[in-house]
């Protein structure tokens, strides 16, 4: 489908990259096959400036207020939030498990760090996901090159700084090829 490219409005603060927000919700009892995943994911909108981002985000429900098996995804415009996307297929993600009650604040801090280019890893960041689950919530940040250890270490250290996580928080890096193998 053809979409109009987002551009910053007059007097707005441009972002380094354009991003899209997506929402997905798993239908209970259905297998999470690639096809049903793609059918269940909806693009909410694309933005090119700080002001455009807030216009979307301010109207969105906070992750901590979602129920059921739901996810928000923030990805660079042109990258689908799927392992199979060309930008993601050689990549991986840092995974942070959060006890209930932390998701809204951590998600906001994470996306502000991405939009503001706080990670300093060139073009490596693809996007981020917050997954709302029954007992805990999961944050993940996806990058292009899973084998680039300097990049993944820098992403981890920046995450620790911007999320201000409890000291006992466990962070795990997973390549997407492993995720595909074991899913």
């Amino acid at each position: 489908a053809r979409r109009k490219m987002a551009v910053p409005g007059a007097g707005e603060h441009p972002l380094q990259f354009n991003y899209s927000l997506w929402y997905s919700r798993r239908t209970p009892g259905r297998p999470a096959s690639t096809q049903s995943y793609e059918q269940n994911i909806r693009q909410i909108g694309t933005f090119a400036s700080v002001e455009q981002f807030w216009r979307f985000y301010s109207h969105m429900i906070r992750p901590g207020d979602l129920t059921g098996h739901s996810d928000f995804h923030l990805f660079k415009d042109g990258i689908k939030p799927m392992w199979e996307d060309d930008a993601n297929k050689m990549g991986g993600k840092w995974i942070i498990r959060l006890r209930k009650g932390l998701a809204s604040r951590c998600w906001e801090n994470l996306i502000l760090a991405i939009l503001g280019e706080q990670f300093m890893v060139g073009e490596e960041i693809c996007g981020a996901v917050v997954s709302v689950r029954f007992q805990e919530d999961i944050l993940s940040i996806w990058n292009k090159t899973a084998s680039d250890q300097a990049t993944t270490a820098r992403i981890r250290d920046t995450l620790r700084r911007v999320l201000n996580l409890p000291p006992n928080t466990i962070m795990e890096y997973k390549t997407h090829t492993d995720s595909i193998k074991y899913s």
Binding site: Q16, V50, E51, Q118
Partner: peptide
């Protein structure tokens, strides 16, 4: 080229101001 970098405080300050100052 130059990177467009914003810190959290700057981004939060733009939250309620649709037009740049």
């Amino acid at each position: 080229g130059t990177r467009i970098i914003y810190d959290r405080k700057f981004l939060l300050e733009r939250r309620s101001s649709p037009v740049a100052k």
